[in-house]
Design a protein around this nucleic acid. Structure first.
Length: 245
DNA sequence: AATAACATCAACCGCAATGTG
DNA sequence: ACACATTGCGGTTGATGTTAT
């Protein structure tokens, strides 16, 4: 009974990845593509579990990843998508090419959350906070009735970048997390975000659209090249880049 | 200079969803 | 329809770096 553990617990390494392990994993995946993650560690000669390999690849080694902090436009989009999708980080990440769900989740928890609270916005509900009643970090007190939130609803005004604000889309009075808003058939934007078209639209170039993002601000600009140079540092300049789609 | 407190983020864990026979 | 395998997701942890005292 019960499923097998995702990996043999014996002899499976944990903790931070070494450059050598990265190299092995990247070499293998570039040569063979992403196939059965369970088999990857064995085939790549790694003493890791498949899950760990997948995570390392998707969050750190993928060639199409951007590096560095999210720029203003990306941050704004995260806020907007979060107001609609809630903590669906993978969905949110789908709207930010080159960014991972983990990265966005971390950035949300460390930067955006605080920023919103500072601005007097509840990072969970995206409604204005009532400062006297609700201290920061206690966003959803039971004695914070939905009616109050509703009163302030119009004050939520996420700056424009072509996407409507949370307040515009919230037609419900309920204080529960924004799950009810997630009806793609009612919302053209949601419909678009959840569609393949959105994911395939490579014109989402935030570094280009953001005024305040200079190459210095956004070292991820020329990420592919930087990554390739990193690979050269590994001594794996003979990557078969054609294998990656 | 030492160290405590805080911030950041890579990585892990457990569960849910999905695929397959 | 069912059982099991595999993958993906979101919450959480812990190591490391940074700042304050």
């Amino acid at each position: 009974m019960g499923r097998q553990p995702c990996c043999d617990k014996l002899g499976v390494k944990k903790g931070p990845w070494t450059a050598e392990e990265d190299k092995k994993l990247v070499n293998f995946l570039l040569a063979h593509g992403q196939c059965c993650w369970r088999a990857v560690p064995k085939l790549a000669g790694l003493r890791r579990c498949g899950k760990s390999c997948r995570l390392r690849w998707t969050n750190y080694l993928r060639p199409d990843l951007k590096r560095g902090l999210l720029n203003e436009a990306e941050e704004q989009l995260v806020i907007d998508l979060h107001s609609r999708l809630g903590n669906r980080w993978s969905k949110i990440a789908a709207g930010l090419p080159g960014r991972t769900d983990n990265e966005i989740k971390n950035h949300w928890n460390t930067h955006i959350k605080k920023k919103l609270i500072k601005m007097g916005i509840d990072p969970i509900t995206h409604e204005p906070l009532r400062k006297q009643v609700t201290p920061p970090e206690m966003p959803c007190k039971p004695n914070n009735p939905p009616a109050d939130l509703e009163m302030n609803q119009q004050n939520v005004n996420i700056p424009e970048h072509g996407i409507s604000s949370a307040a515009e889309s919230s037609s419900s009075n309920e204080s529960q997390p924004l799950e009810p808003n997630l009806k793609s058939e009612d919302d053209p934007l949601m419909s678009y975000i959840l569609s393949d078209t959105f994911l395939e639209d490579l014109t989402w170039d935030f570094s280009a659209s953001s005024e305040d993002s200079s190459p210095a601000d956004n070292p991820a600009e020329d990420n592919s090249l930087a990554w390739f140079l990193d690979c050269k540092d590994f001594g794996v300049e003979d990557f078969e880049l054609g294998c990656i789609n």
